[in-house]
Each structure stands twice: as structure tokens, then as C-alpha cells.
Amino acid sequence: MPVRRGHVAPQNTFLDTIIRKFEGQSRKFIIANARVENCAVIYCNDGFCELCGYSRAEVMQRPCTCDFLHGPRTQRRAAAQIAQALLGAEERKVEIAFYRKDGSCFLCLVDVVPVKNEDGAVIMFILNFEVVMEKDMVGSPAHDTNHRGPPTSWLAPGRAKTFRLKLPALLALTARESSVRSGGAGGAGAPGAVVVDVDLTPAAPSSESLALDEVTAMDNHVAGLGPAEERRALVGPGSPPRSAPGQLPSPRAHSLNPDASGSSCSLARTRSRESCASVRRASSADDIEAMRAGVLPPPPRHASTGAMHPLRSGLLNSTSDSDLVRYRTISKIPQITLNFVDLKGDPFLASPTSDREIIAPKIKERTHNVTEKVTQVLSLGADVLPEYKLQAPRIHRWTILHYSPFKAVWDWLILLLVIYTAVFTPYSAAFLLKETEEGPPATECGYACQPLAVVDLIVDIMFIVDILINFRTTYVNANEEVVSHPGRIAVHYFKGWFLIDMVAAIPFDLLI
């Protein structure tokens, strides 16, 4: 008679799926529990143990900040960024110097990925580790590398530091407007667009060049630039800015003055950032001319202004700041037409079709709590990747769950009947059967004279019903998954307890 339990259901295979997918890609990662103190490590794979030199037993239950890997060259700011990422709910990448158990130093890129439950609360953290440099290539500990984003994938490793954006290309926007319009339909740009040429040739750093990471940081200074100062900065030398009595002219307006920039070969870094931020506020060169004239017309309804409409929906549905990093990277690809469009465009503009998908598509409701890094690593669709929660398995109709209350009560009843059979069957065979043979035949009273025979008949009927119930009862397979398919249940029961239950259900007393 089957006594099969499996009270692990309803099970959740999400954690096993993450481990299996990460292991298949030869990654070095740990999984931490966000619900406990210090976000203790609950799993670390073999790749991480080989990377740091510690065994799994030495890593388990330690804080996922990996303070046991810190050393003299470990930056405090990087460690603080990892700790801050564990307090938030967004994906974050941090470069930090770690030390192995043998004392060797290596520069590592740590990717902190939160995993949320159905309520939107962070319950786990996945920390992925990628070695960037070994100890002989690690720089000085005073050099802070965590304020910069990861290198873009479309640049060669040897040319990542030679990417320079020439400031004269930004200063000569109005001069290039006529050349853009003359391109017409034969050019790649839309009317009114501004073409910015980027020099990728390796050259020595000069005062006129600005690194790509500095251009990325310009967006942080746009908020500090007032509207009046932006307007004066875009007017140009024809209309000098008016300053109040006793007030000095704005240095932001002076930063885009061609006369002032041409007199000296070098520009201050602050002026460069502010000038680029001011130019980015204009949607095209037409807006710059309109600002000089004193009238700013409404933005025209053409394809170039609607190019950012799908980007707005993608940004609203993005799951991490990696989408913004990807957008900034692609927006700086050289030799393309940049349409400086305000994100607050007309909502009635139709979304044009684009061959290049900048932001990841909208994630469906079932995966809105899973970050983009987890979705990318697992390579699963929205119909396959579940949320991290207890999910009731989908069972067929008329199927009994093996952990249901009805099955528990039924098993206790069958257990009592088995005990009765084990006690009274030998007793009936030894004593009652002998008395029946010696006594007179009682054929007239039937079952009324033999109450134990009636009980034995009921017990046999219950055993037959138990066999039928076992054909529709779920079970737990070797992978700790609840199986509810009727065919698989029948095959599993035939290979197991079916023969024993059938022999126990045969009414031998009635056959004798």
C-alpha cells in the first residue's frame, strides 16, 4: 500500500533555474538572501570558489559584500557603492579590487542584480563577478574607477581610450546646418538635424578633445543650467548677453562664444560640459537660429522629431539603469545623424518603425519583477520565466494532490484497515475457520451469522477504491517536481505499489 509523501509542494524551481543557467555559462556568482541580516550568502558556485580561493563552506553565510576579499588596494568608495546597491532595488555595476585567499590582487567587475517577489519586494541578490585585470595590471588604489561605466561593446579594446569628441564640431553647429540641408533625401539625416562627426583615429590627448566618459557625465550638469543662461549661451556672438549692473557675465554663455574659444586653444572642462549641455537642449539648428531671432517656433511634425517616441515608452518600462547606459552608448555611435529632440514631445505622434532597438522591449506582467540581467542570462521568455513566489501546480481535472487534506485522511483510514487485516486475518484463519468446520452448517442466516465476513468484505472494497484513487494521485519525481499527468501517474504506480495493492485487495476469504 503506498505511503508516498512529498510535502515540499507547491515547489518553486526558480532558484534552481537560475543556478542551472548560470552554471551553463561558466559564470562566477553568488546568491544572497536579502531578508536576513547583512544579506548572507546562501549559494556560491564553483567558479566563484576558484576565483577567490575560498571553499564553499568558508563563503556560505558570510555577508555578500565580500568584505573578506578586501585588501589594501580595495577602494572604500567601491565598497560603499556595493553596500548601497544592496540597500536599493536597481541593478548596478561596480569595479573593485579584490584579494584572493593567497593574497593576489585582481580588479573585478561586480554586477549586483536584485530579484523581487510578486509584491515588488527584493528577496534575493545575485552578484556576478568578472575579472577585468590581474594584480600586475591593477593601478594605484588612489585612482577611482567606479565613477565610470563599463566599456562599450562596439569599441575595440585597444581603442576604448582613444575615443574623442571634438569640441569644434559642437561649436560649428550653425555652420554645418547648410551642408545638412543640402544633403536632402540623399543624406542619412532628416531636415533640421545636426550631424556630429566623431574622430576615432588614435591621437595624443589634446586640450581640444573630450573623453567619452566626460560626455556621459554632461547629463548630470544640465539641471544646474538655468533657462535664461541656456538661451544666452545659444544666442551666440551676435547678441551678447546682458548683465545687470554690478553683475558679471555668465561664464556659461561665454563658453560657447566662437570668438572667445578661437582665441585660446584650450577650454576648461567645466565650460566644455556646460556648452555641450546647452546645445543638447535645442532640438535642431533651426531652433538655434530661432533663439537668435527671439522667436522659438513649435517643433515640426516630421520623422526626426518622432524618433524618440518609442524611446520614451522603453525608458518607462525599463527595469534597470543598464538600459540608460545602453541608450547613452548607442546615442554616441560615430558617423550617424543625431536628432536633438526633447523627450517631452507630442504624445499624438505616431511611433516610426526603427531597425535598431535601443531599449529592451516591454516586459510582460509575469516578468515585471525580474531584472534585465536575470532575463538576459536565463534566456527565457515571458511565458517560461515565473515570478519568485509559491505557485500552485497546474493539475488535470479529477486529480488528487498527494499533500491535500483528503489524501491525508484517506491514508490514515487505509492504515487502520491494514492494521485490522494484519490482526484479524490470522485470527480468523486459526480459530474461526476451525469452529466453522466443526459446527453445523448455517446457510440460512447468511452474513448475519458471520459479522467478521462483512467487515472483511468492506475492507476489500476499500482497498479496491484505494487502488483507483492512487491512479489519480500526484507524486514527486526525482527532481522534486509534482507530477499531475494521468499517464505518468499510471506508469509510476504500475512500477511501484500496484502489484502489492492488488494482492492485498483480493478477497481470499470469499474465494475459499
Rank of each mutant, 00 (worst) to 15 (best):
L86R: 01
V377H: 04
G306Y: 14
P72I: 01
L338K: 09
P72V: 05
R326L: 05
A382F: 05
N38G: 13
R5Y: 13
S272R: 08
R271Q: 13
S379F: 05
I31N: 01
L155C: 11
L343S: 15
V341Y: 04
S104W: 01
V295L: 15
S263F: 08
R292Y: 14
V196L: 09
N38Q: 10
H70T: 07
P352V: 12
A290G: 07
P334Q: 07
I336F: 14
A9C: 09
Q25S: 10
S266I: 07
D46R: 10
V377P: 04
E23H: 03
G187M: 06
A382D: 11
T367N: 07
A97P: 01
T270P: 09
A79I: 13
P151N: 11
N12W: 10
S239R: 07
A185G: 14
N33D: 06
A228V: 12
K93E: 13
G236T: 08
A282W: 13
L385A: 11
I363D: 09
R273W: 13
R73G: 11
G24V: 06
Q75F: 01
G184Y: 07
S26W: 06
A32E: 01
R73F: 03
M137Q: 15
L380G: 04
R356W: 01
G120V: 06
S250E: 05
C276S: 07
R27I: 05
G294I: 08
T367D: 12
S178R: 15
A40G: 14
A290C: 13
G246Q: 05
N257R: 06
V132W: 04
D199W: 01
R77L: 13
T65Q: 07
N146E: 10
E130H: 07
V194K: 01
G381I: 03
A268T: 11
R366W: 08
R181E: 06
D67L: 07
L15P: 05
G345C: 05
P141A: 12
E37L: 09
Q247G: 12
S275N: 14
K161Y: 01
V115T: 05
C52M: 09
P114R: 04
A172H: 06
Q84S: 13
A175G: 15
C44W: 01
I333G: 14
L225R: 15
L15W: 12
A350V: 05
C108N: 01
A350Q: 07
V377D: 03
S304W: 14
K28G: 06
I82Q: 01
G224I: 06
R73V: 09
M218Y: 13
R92L: 07
V122L: 12
A307P: 12
Q61G: 14
A142E: 14
V138M: 03
G345H: 11
E91Y: 15
P240K: 11
S320E: 07
R242G: 15
S275G: 09
R271N: 13
M60D: 01
L107M: 07
L378D: 01
A85V: 01
A293C: 12
K28S: 09
R20F: 05
R242I: 09
D119M: 15
E90Q: 11
V279H: 12
Y54A: 01
I333A: 09
E134K: 13
D197M: 01
K362Y: 11
V222M: 08
I358G: 05
I123V: 09
R271T: 14
V384R: 07
V3F: 13
A204W: 11
G53E: 01
V198Q: 11
P227N: 11
S179Q: 06
E372Q: 12
S272H: 11
P72R: 05
I358Y: 11
L378M: 09
L210Y: 03
T65F: 05
E58K: 01
F125G: 11
L378A: 05
G53C: 01
D286H: 15
P249H: 13
S272Y: 04
T174E: 14
G103D: 06
E118Q: 10
T162K: 12
R328P: 12
G314H: 06
T145R: 12
R312E: 06
E134D: 12
L248K: 03
Y54P: 01
T162D: 15
G53N: 01
R301A: 12
C105I: 10
R100K: 15
